[in-house]
């Protein structure tokens, strides 16, 4: 990822203008963007319902949340509303996945694309102080963190980017109606990088088994990962909460928890572009990227497929090719 140009204010203004115009002209009933949380250390999803509130919207490197989560079918409220939404590069890929399967209605959607220069890992930044962080400010290549006692620390932005932002090949949205700001340069070599899972992959099987058991022992089955996931949408029909068939029990132990996560992983295979929303939603910090990044790596090797790139592409598990280069024997 290239160093930040720091053009956040201009883009933020543009998002506000586009949202204001859409709301005033009645093209959308509400606009979903990012807004500041309960203090300046956090950016959360913000629903803007009138044009005079658009100044609540913000755009800065803390805007990690993938807002397409709110577009999952049956979620829009009220159901017939026309919705405006802001998307980064990775968010747009989940939107493309939803559009490929006709899970959201394109006619009722207004998409503002936001070229992204990388998102800061708020969880990592907030750990530099033992007590509560109240302000995180990103200025150029530097992050200024302030805690509740008014102490500040300077960090290098490069060290605190989200893992998948470092190796991002699609910083510009793949699908949008209006682009807020100029497209940022995309890497010339678009071969995906998987360095964040390489270390784990190289471990012996016994060790992986132990680490998985340790990680999933912590899971409290709060379902935040599947609720935050933009492409996981079975709702009441979710097999994880079903007793017939009973694939996953309601007991909370490492095995059942991992089984639950595998249901999630296999059901979003081919739609999940590893936007990381599940990782960030997890309250006990289970390294879910080890599963979905691995899944995407294998899909790339198996079928030369990357999810959410091409609107015309059929979802890989809903189709087949007689010449698939595996399982020929």
């Amino acid at each position: 990822m290239s160093p930040a140009n720091g053009n956040y204010e201009a883009v933020e203004q543009r998002i506000r203008e586009l949202a204001r115009a859409a709301l005033e002209e009645g093209r959308v009933d509400y606009f979903i963007g990012w807004t500041t949380g309960y203090n300046e250390s956090e950016v959360i999803p913000g629903f803007v319902r009138s044009a005079d509130k658009v100044d609540d919207l913000v755009w800065n490197p803390l805007a990690a949340y993938n807002l397409t989560t709110f577009l999952k079918r049956k979620m829009p409220d009220p159901p017939q509303a026309k919705i405006g939404v802001a998307v980064k590069g990775c968010d747009s890929r989940t939107l493309v996945s939803l559009l490929q399967e006709n899970l959201v209605d394109r006619e009722r959607l207004y998409v503002v694309g936001v070229p992204c220069e990388g998102i800061v890992n708020r969880r990592a930044v907030s750990k530099v102080f033992a007590n509560e962080v109240v302000k995180i400010e990103v200025a150029g290549d530097q992050i200024n963190v302030t805690n509740q006692d008014g102490e500040t620390k300077q960090l290098a932005r490069e060290d605190y980017l989200l893992d998948h932002c470092r190796s991002c090949n699609y910083p510009n949205p793949r699908y949008f109606d209006d682009l807020a700001g100029e497209a940022v340069p995309e890497p010339e070599d678009q071969t995906p990088m998987w360095r964040e899972i390489e270390e784990f992959e190289a471990l012996p099987e016994k060790e992986k088994d132990r680490l998985m058991a340790e990680a999933f022992e912590k899971c409290i089955r709060c379902y935040a990962c599947i609720n935050a996931c933009p492409v996981c949408y079975c709702w009441d029909n979710c097999v994880c909460r079903s007793r017939q068939p009973k694939l996953v029990g309601q007991k909370v132990n490492a095995q059942e928890n991992l089984m639950f996560q595998m249901v999630h992983m296999f059901h979003v295979a081919g739609r999940c572009p590893s936007c990381g929303n599940c990782d960030r939603a997890c309250p006990v910090e289970i390294p879910l990227y080890l599963l979905h990044r691995k899944m995407n790596k294998e899909l790339k090797e198996m079928l030369d497929f990357e999810p959410g790139i091409d609107l015309e592409q059929k979802p890989v598990f809903q189709t087949f090719d007689v010449n698939d280069p595996f399982g020929q024997h």
């Binding site: 099987e205 998985m212 198996m302």
Partner: peptide
Amino acid sequence: EGNYYARRKLELLERMLPQLGFE
């Protein structure tokens, strides 16, 4: 064509199992 669909799913599973600690 059932086994063509199966093939993709089973191949992905086979590749995912080592990540979960299976030989």
